[in-house]
Design a protein around this nucleic acid. Structure first.
Length: 586
RNA sequence: GGAGCCGUGGUGGAGUGGUUACCAUGCCGGCCUGUCAAGCCGGAGGUCGUGGGUUCAAAUCCCAUCGGCUUCGCCA
C-alpha cells in the first residue's frame, strides 16, 4: 500500500476521498470498541480511527499495534463528529476511518518519548539520534536549516555566483585553530589537514577568474566545544572580485532579509546599523555586542586619573582604564549577590570589583571613603546614577576591563530579564585592528586572519609601525552572536609578505607554507574580498534554540565524540602499519 | 588545563547512615465505542555510573575514576 497523501496534506475539502497513508504510530488510544491512532509522517500528525463496524480485520490488527510501528492505512477522509475536533492539530477537523491496515514494521519501545520538550540526558538522545530526530521540534529544526541553505544557494545563484568545491584533504597552516590531521598512506610521516576554512582556495579561485564564488563548506577546528561550537561546522563561504566593503555588506543584507523571510517569516530592516570595533569594545565590552538592551559601559578614566584611590589611579598610570556600568534599579541586590558578581568578575580576569549602592539617603560602598566628594559627584553624573541604582566598577588594562564589564552587562541583563527574545538585532562591526600583540607568543597575531587587507591609508605602517593599523574587516552580529565575518583581502604579493613577516614568520616558513599563494599573486590577481557565515549558529538563532547541536543532525558531545557510532575509536594494527603510525603509551 | 551542576527501574524526579529504595510516566495484562496527557483495575521492572575506603550498617560520608551539560582558557 503506497501512500497517496501526506498526513497533513489532507484538509476539510478532502472529506469523502479514499486515501492511503504511510507513517509511524505516534500514539494509540484503545477504547475497547474503538481505537484511535495518531499517525505521524514527516509532515505531521493525523488521527486515524479503527471501528469494528468499518472493518473487523483492521480493528483487530490495530489492537496489536504499538508506538513507533510503521504502518500503512487505507480509508476514507471524514469530518470528525461535532465536539470531537482537536484545535491543537493542523488536521484536527478530520480523521481517517480505516478499512485496511498493513504493519510494515514493528518497533521496540523507544528509550525516551518521541515528543517535543523532553528533558532527557543528551547522551541518550545522541545515542539514539535517529529517534531524537523523529521528534517534531527536531524535524522542524532540520527543515528550517534546509530552507535557509536552499535560500542561500538560490539567492547567490540568481546573483551570478558559482558554487565550487574545495579540497577537504589539504595543507596544515600555521596560526588559527588546532588542525585535524589525516595521515598520508602514500607519504609516510606526512599529514593532510582538514580545512579550518576554504580561505586560501577561494582566494585562488579569484586569481583563477571565477569572480563570484560560494560554497556551503564544512570546516574543522580541533578546539574545545561549547554550546555554540562544534569541531566540525558549516560555513556559507563567499568570495568576490572587483568589489569593496559596501558591495559585500549590501549584498549580504539583502540575503539576510530573504533568509529570515523564507526561513521564519520575519521582516527585518536593512541596511543594518554599523558600529566601530573601538566603540563596541568601549560601550559594550564586546566585539559582538547584544544591543537588545542598554546598560552601556561608561568610561571614568579621565575623572579618576588624579584620584587618591590607588586601585583606580595606579591602573590608569599603568596605561589602563577605569570604567563602570550602572545597574539600574539593582540597589536592592543583597550583599551576597554583589559579592557573587564580584567573584564572576574575578573569574573573568579582574583583580576585584568595586561597587556603589545608591540609596535615597546615602551611598553604600567599600570605596567611597577613598574618593573625594567632587569625584563621587562626577561619577554619579557620568553614570546618570539615581537612588535605587547599583554601580559596578572595573579598573585594569583596557582589554580586561572590557571583558569583565562586557560580561557583567550580559549577566545583569539576564538577571533583570532585559532581553526581548523576539527581537532580531543585527549590526555590522567594522574597523577592527589588523593585529593584536600576543603576550604568550611574544609577537603580533592577526585579529581576523593574515590575508586581511589593512586600510589603504595604513599601508605604509606595515613596515615598522603595526600597532593601531585598521583592517578592512567586518563582522555581522545578531543578538550578541557573531554569525559571520569577512574582509577585503590582500592581493599584492609584496603586502602579503610584509604581513607574514610582521607575524614573525621566517622567509623559509613563508615559502614552505604559502609560497604557492604568493606565486599565484604574481599572475594578475584581482582585488577581492568575501565573507563567511556560520550556518549552524544562524539556524540555531532562527530556530530559537540554545545549542548548535539542535540544528545539526549528528553532532558531537562536549568531549568531541559521537555516542551513536562511538567515534573516535581505535583502529587495527594493520591500518596503523600502513600509515607507519605507532601509538605511544602515555 | 581550571571551575560549576548532574548521574537512583525504560524515562524524569524524591530519598543526608538503619525495615522490602518512594513518586510520576512509560511498559505488560484485563475492562472499556469519541479519545487526543484517554479512563479504570492489576502486574512486571533497580549491580542507586564504576572502583576503592570509613562503618555493625552506605544510594546517603570520604577518595579516585568515567560520562553528560554549562563555562574560563582555547576557537586566525
Amino acid at each position: 500500500m503506497k501512500r497517496t497523501h501526506n498526513a497533513t496534506g489532507l484538509e476539510v475539502k478532502d472529506v469523502g476521498v479514499q486515501v492511503v497513508l504511510n507513517g509511524w504510530v505516534d500514539s494509540r488510544r484503545d477504547h475497547g470498541g474503538l481505537i484511535f491512532i495518531d499517525l505521524r509522517d514527516r509532515s505531521g500528525l493525523i488521527q486515524v480511527v479503527f471501528s469494528p463496524e468499518v472493518n473487523q480485520d483492521a480493528f483487530h490488527l490495530a489492537e496489536q499495534v504499538r508506538s513507533e510501528y510503521v504502518v500503512a492505512v487505507q480509508g476514507k477522509v471524514s469530518l470528525r463528529p461535532a465536539d470531537t475536533e482537536n484545535p491543537n492539530l493542523k488536521t484536527g477537523k478530520i480523521e481517517i476511518y480505516v478499512q485496511k491496515m498493513e504493519i510494515m514494521n514493528t518497533a521496540k519501545t523507544p528509550p525516551f518519548y518521541i515528543e517535543d520538550g523532553i528533558d532527557v540526558d543528551e547522551n541518550l538522545r545522541l545515542k539514539y539520534r535517529y529517534l531524537d530526530l523523529r521528534r517534531g521540534e527536531m524535524r522542524e529544526n532540520l527543515m528550517l536549516r534546509h530552507r535557509v541553505v536552499k535560500t542561500m544557494r538560490d539567492f547567490l545563484d540568481s546573483r551570478g555566483f558559482l558554487e565550487i568545491e574545495t579540497p577537504m584533504l589539504t595543507k596544515s597552516s600555521p596560526e588559527g585553530a588546532r588542525d585535524y590531521l589525516v595521515p598520508s598512506r602514500v607519504h609516510h610521516g606526512e599529514f593532510f589537514a582538514l580545512p579550518q576554512s576554504p580561505q586560501i582556495f577561494k582566494q585562488l579561485l579569484m586569481v583563477a577568474g571565477m569572480e563570484k564564488y560560494f560554497q556551503v563548506a564544512r570546516c574543522f577546528r580541533d578546539e574545545d566545544l561549547r554550546a555554540d561550537r562544534q569541531p566540525e561546522f558549516t560555513q556559507l563561504d563567499i568570495e568576490m572580485s572587483f568589489i569593496d566593503e559596501e558591495d559585500i555588506m549590501g549584498l549580504m543584507e539583502e540575503m539576510m532579509a530573504l533568509i529570515f523571510k523564507v526561513g521564519i517569516n520575519r521582516d527585518i530592516n536593512i541596511p543594518f546599523p554599523r558600529l566601530s570595533y573601538d566603540e563596541a569594545m568601549k560601550k559594550y565590552g564586546s566585539d559582538a555586542p547584544d544591543l537588545r538592551f542598554g546598560l552601556e559601559i561608561v568610561d571614568l578614566t579621565e575623572i579618576m586619573a588624579q584620584s587618591q584611590f590607588q586601585v583606580f589611579s595606579s591602573a590608569i598610570q599603568a596605561g589602563g582604564v577605569v570604567r563602570a556600568i550602572n545597574a539600574k534599579g539593582c540597589a536592592s541586590f543583597k550583599r551576597r549577590e554583589i559579592d557573587q558578581l564580584g567573584q564572576l568578575a574575578i573569574d573573568y580576569g579582574a583583580k576585584g570589583m568595586a561597587w556603589i549602592v545608591v540609596s535615597e539617603k546615602e551611598l553604600k560602598s567599600p570605596i567611597t571613603k577613598f574618593l573625594k566628594a567632587q569625584e563621587i559627584e562626577e561619577i554619579m553624573s557620568a553614570l546618570d546614577a539615581q537612588p535605587g541604582d547599583l554601580i559596578l566598577f572595573a579598573a585594569d588594562k583596557q582589554e580586561i576591563v572590557s571583558r569583565v564589564l562586557g560580561f557583567l552587562r550580559m549577566e545583569l541583563a539576564r538577571r533583570l530579564d532585559l532581553i526581548d527574545k523576539d527581537e532580531l538585532n543585527f549590526m555590522w562591526i567594522y574597523d577592527f585592528p589588523l593585529f593584536e600583540y600576543d603576550q604568550e607568543e611574544g609577537r603580533y597575531v592577526a585579529v581576523h586572519h593574515m590575508f586581511t587587507s589593512p586600510r589603504l591609508s595604513d599601508l605604509d605602517r606595515l613596515d615598522n609601525n603595526p600597532e593601531g593599523i585598521k583592517a578592512r574587516a567586518y563582522d555581522l552580529v545578531l543578538n550578541g552572536t557573531e554569525i559571520g565575518g569577512g574582509s577585503i583581502r590582500i592581493h599584492q604579493r609584496e603586502w602579503q609578505e610584509k604581513v607574514f613577516s610582521l607575524l614573525g614568520m621566517s622567509f623559509e616558513e613563508v615559502r614552505d607554507k604559502f609560497g604557492y599563494m604568493l606565486d599565484a599573486f604574481e599572475y594578475g590577481t584581482p582585488p577581492h574580498g568575501g565573507i563567511a557565515f556560520g550556518i549552524d549558529r544562524l539556524a540555531m538563532i532562527m530556530g530559537g534554540r540554545s545549542s548548535i547541536r539542535d540544528v545539526i543532525a549528528f553532532p558531537k558531545t562536549q568531549s568531541a565524540s559521537c555516542p551513536l557510532t562511538n567515534a573516535p575509536s581505535a583502529v587495527s594494527n594493520k591500518q596503523l602499519r600502513e600509515l607507519a603510525i605507532k601509538i605511544r603509551e602515555k
